[in-house]
Design a protein around this nucleic acid. Structure first.
Length: 187
DNA sequence: CCTGTGATCGTCT
DNA sequence: GACGATCACAGGT
């Protein structure tokens, strides 16, 4: 048995985006060995007014229209990065927060803060902590430097997505209930 | 605990 | 020319 067999399979991402988003909660995500457990995600689809892909293909959102299982990394507000996993057909899952478990000292140094609650508790924060930037846009999340592995069964809380002005009625935020590492407390 | 605001720039209108 | 799938910090409750 190779360690590769432990990783998520490519088919994991070729399902409805909200199913992928829910099932990513509890999985382990690291970059070059630095990261932790995913505790919060959001789903975005092509027919979804909150999604970057809603108005069709552009140079920015191109990875969302490419193969499933790739990184879609974009800059927001001119200064932060956000990491998504593509699920095909203009859909993707935003990774919103992690429970930091591996390389916490490296993450604290990159973030310039101390305390595990502040390392990865938001989409911009976790990109800074894991070293994610635009150079990873379009890369396969099934290969180095990514490592993505399944977790154990867990209770998932569903609620409205954060920071959007349209599509507020679609409850596509998925979080690990009660986790102290969320970007915001569970509903 | 909460709300408000400045930072900062690529993307789309 | 306007607007973000955000964050950190300040100030009031």
């Amino acid at each position: 048995m190779t360690s590769q067999a432990m990783h998520l399979a490519a088919g994991f991402f070729e399902r409805p985006v909200e199913v992928v988003a829910a099932n990513l909660v509890g999985c382990s995500l690291t970059l070059d060995g630095v990261g932790g457990r995913i505790v919060e995600t959001e789903a975005y689809a092509a027919d979804d007014p909150a999604s970057h892909s809603f108005r069709g293909l552009t140079s920015r959102n191109a990875p969302m229209f490419g193969p499933a299982g790739r990184a879609y990394v974009y800059r927001i507000y001119g200064l932060h990065w956000c990491l998504n996993f593509t699920c095909g057909n203009g859909s993707a899952v935003l990774i919103r927060s992690l429970e930091p478990l591996a390389g916490n000292e490296i993450m604290a140094a990159r973030r310039g803060v101390a305390g595990p609650q502040n390392l990865c508790s938001g989409p911009g924060k976790l990109c800074q902590a894991l070293g994610v930037d635009g150079s990873l846009n379009g890369a396969s999340v099934l290969e180095q430097p990514f490592a993505l592995m399944p977790g154990v069964a867990h209770p998932v809380i569903v609620g409205p997505r954060i920071g959007i002005t349209r599509g507020r009625d679609t409850p596509w935020r998925f979080s690990h209930g009660g986790s102290p590492y969320l970007s915001r407390r569970s509903p």
